[in-house]
């Protein structure tokens, strides 16, 4: 039995066509079903659909053998003990630092000394700012990051940006490009050693069909 963990949300939407091109069709509509474990047309391949941030945990401890997770989630998690097999080229977006338009035009983050940054991605942001030599207080939020600078909670934010419309609607402007993000195929280390024969066809199909 091969268990593949999929991240809810945008990654799921883009994973399903990829899976179908790879010949793996879920038995139920993943967007509608309430079941947490769903079989596929391939015997011994099943899917679990979980929150994106949980995928590394499931895969690390072998609850799922393979997983599809965003590079943002993998970096934030640390990815320790996981095999990051391939960039699937789907769910592409960018992790950006954004600030209110007037601040942004006055010369970006570097002019602040103790920057207050609101983000969901604490580890990535810490590492990025440290590499830039910027001292910062990181404010961990779970959503609606754009609000933080507007209400004076933070000077700027680090968040995923795909079109940039949400930023613009809230008077924010990207100032720094932190990271290119896309969905990766990850594997449990022990599963790769114990049941590589079963995993190999799934891995080969998925990486062959990766987006461009």
């Amino acid at each position: 039995m091969v268990t593949l963990a999929l991240s809810k949300g945008r990654i799921l939407e883009e994973s399903i066509p990829l899976l179908e091109r790879a010949g793996i069709v879920p038995e139920e509509d993943l967007a509608k079903t309430r079941r947490l474990i769903v079989g596929t047309n391939v015997p011994d391949v099943r899917l679990v659909v979980i929150r994106a941030a949980d995928v590394p945990t499931y895969v690390r401890y072998g609850a799922a053998d393979l997983g599809i997770a965003g590079k943002d989630v993998l970096l934030e998690d640390g990815g320790e003990g996981l095999f990051e097999l391939a960039d699937l080229g789907i769910a592409v977006c960018r992790l950006m630092m954004a600030a209110p338009i007037d601040e942004a035009s006055r010369g970006i983050a570097r002019s602040w000394t103790r920057l207050r940054v609101a983000t969901k991605y604490v580890r990535i942001t810490e590492r990025y700012l440290a590499a830039q030599g910027i001292q910062a207080d990181i404010i961990h939020l779970y959503g609606s990051m754009e609000l933080a600078p507007l209400v004076g909670l933070a000077d700027c934010i680090v968040d995923l940006v795909s079109s940039g419309r949400t930023l613009a609607a809230n008077g924010l402007k990207p100032v720094e490009h932190v990271l290119d993000v896309s969905a990766w195929l990850v594997a449990n280390r022990a599963a790769m050693k114990m049941k590589y024969e079963a995993l190999r066809p799934v891995i080969t199909c998925l990486t062959k069909e990766r987006g461009t």
């Binding site: 690390r60 401890y61 072998g62 003990g81 280390r189 022990a190 599963a191 050693k193 114990m194």
Partner: peptide, 9 residues
């Protein structure tokens, strides 16, 4: 060494 059902050595 690994055993089935446990995701670590």
């Amino acid at each position: 060494a690994f055993v089935a059902g446990y995701g670590q050595a």
